[in-house]
């Protein structure tokens, strides 16, 4: 073998990456292209034929009331869940990291919601928040507050689902922050102590927070993506109700596609959703990544 490295062995390289490429094409690229094509048709699930309708499905979206409600609800949900679960995750990470004992216990306990099945947990939450026999309302009762139908009332359902989402995500964010905290050199804290920054608050602003910058950015983006993907709790507890107050994008897509069989419409929704997530990822890579790594 002479010449350029790997010259004449291109087939070997392709063979070696074939499993990954095959998986990517079959499960990511292929379906995405399929959805993009379907979004340009009026295909109904089960129908024998479909007509090409161009961008009609997209053009209809701005005027679609359900889509507008779902989009707004998803954004509100993300705007509540992301900051609270990120801050809570950071707080928990700092507490767990500083705990004199039982770190493994706390770490596992707070991570439990992440590994548990959301649909099953949704049932538990439904019981906890039940208007008449739920412990949450019994607790309110002892305080003299009338029972609330948290999940059945249009004004409280989205914040309540967001609270469950926070419970679900804070532990995940905590674990990410714990990893970030571990990567901060101990000597920096010692240098800060010698330089006069030795109170907890001063340590946090001088060392911890700035050095968590890359982790923080990563956690915020991941938390946003995760919150925009809310589906299980809505599907299991509220089905988007009452009166579409908990209608979110993924649930709308699911309903349109598999409830009303309007695959063309659902595909257009999916493409919009995908585009949103892509923009988020690009913002992370292009704009922010460089600013938090201090180069």
């Amino acid at each position: 073998m002479t010449g350029k490295p790997g010259g004449g062995r291109g087939w070997l390289a392709w063979l070696l990456i074939a499993p990954a490429v095959l998986g990517l094409v079959l499960f990511v690229l292929g379906p995405t292209i399929a959805v993009a094509v379907m979004s340009l048709t009026d295909w109904q699930l089960g129908a024998a034929e479909a007509a090409f309708v161009g961008l009609d499905n997209y053009a209809a979206l701005p005027g679609d009331r359900v889509f507008r409600i779902a989009l707004a609800n998803t954004l509100v949900y993300g705007a509540i869940v992301t900051p609270v679960s990120v801050l809570l995750g950071l707080g928990l990470a700092l507490l767990v990291e500083g705990a004199p004992a039982g770190r493994t216990f706390f770490r596992s306990a707070f991570f439990l919601p992440v590994v548990s099945t959301t649909v099953a947990m949704a049932v538990v939450w439904e019981f906890l928040l039940h208007p008449s026999m739920g412990p949450a309302n019994l607790l309110l009762g002892t305080l003299g507050i009338a029972p609330q139908n948290f999940l059945g009332h249009a004004g409280t359902v989205l914040p309540t689902l967001a609270a469950i989402g926070i419970w679900e995500n804070a532990g995940f964010n905590m674990v990410l922050f714990l990893a970030g905290l571990k990567s901060i050199p101990r000597e920096l804290y010692q240098a800060a102590a010698v330089d006069g920054a030795d109170r907890p608050w001063e340590r946090f602003w001088t060392v911890t927070f700035p050095l968590l910058g890359p982790t923080l950015l990563f956690v915020v983006v991941i938390a946003l993506l995760r919150s925009f993907k809310v589906f299980e709790t809505v599907a299991a507890i509220t089905q988007g109700g009452p009166r579409r107050a908990s209608e979110v994008l993924l649930y709308t897509i699911y309903q349109e596609g598999f409830g009303f069989f309007r695959i063309g419409h659902a595909s257009a929704l999916t493409m919009v959703f995908l585009a949103g997530l892509l923009v988020l990822a690009l913002v992370q890579i292009r704009l922010l990544d460089r600013r938090v790594h201090y180069r």
């Binding site: 050199p185 800060a192 010698v194 006069g196 060392v207």
Partner: peptide, 29 residues
């Protein structure tokens, strides 16, 4: 504590604050 002793230390890894400029690093104490 270290602060009360008025000692200064140079660490093997230098332990500079990566998010601060040189001026800010020197100014911190």
């Amino acid at each position: 504590p270290p602060k009360g002793r008025d000692v200064a230390m140079v660490f093997q890894s230098y332990a500079l604050y990566p998010h601060m400029t040189v001026a800010q690093n020197i100014a911190l104490p």
